[in-house]
């Protein structure tokens, strides 16, 4: 995150000067969605319903952008072929 700016650098009327893609909401996550590519039918339902725009279609396969995924599990629940499993986050 950028250092807090002085009032001299605040744009007119306080319009937002950065995009929220700077904010990695992935650190909220307790459960991590993991896609089993062998099961995935590329139906794109997970992409459609992801509230955090964290499911990416790269033209060939579907993958998760963990920078933003909050781990809500909607993708896993909605997946018609159960190709997504929610795995507990481990680590620090």
């Amino acid at each position: 995150m950028a250092t807090l700016r002085s009032w001299r650098e605040i744009p007119l009327g306080g319009v937002a000067f950065r995009l929220s893609t700077d904010v990695k909401t992935g650190d909220w996550r307790a459960l991590r969605p993991v896609i089993d590519q062998s099961k995935c039918t590329k139906c794109m339902i997970c992409w459609l319903y992801c509230p955090d725009m964290s499911i990416i279609w790269d033209g060939e396969k579907v993958f998760v952008n963990y920078d933003y995924c909050k781990g809500c599990g909607i993708c896993a629940h909605e997946c018609p072929v159960k190709a997504i499993t929610m795995v507990p986050e481990v680590g620090e």
């Binding site: 807090l4 700016r5 009032w7 605040i10 007119l12 306080g14 319009v15 937002a16």
Partner: peptide
């Protein structure tokens, strides 16, 4: 984006201009 939420970290700075 007009009319953002600015909390204790920016509200004060936004008022000075």
């Amino acid at each position: 984006s007009f009319g953002n939420l600015a909390l204790y970290d920016y509200y004060f700075e936004m008022k000075i201009p």
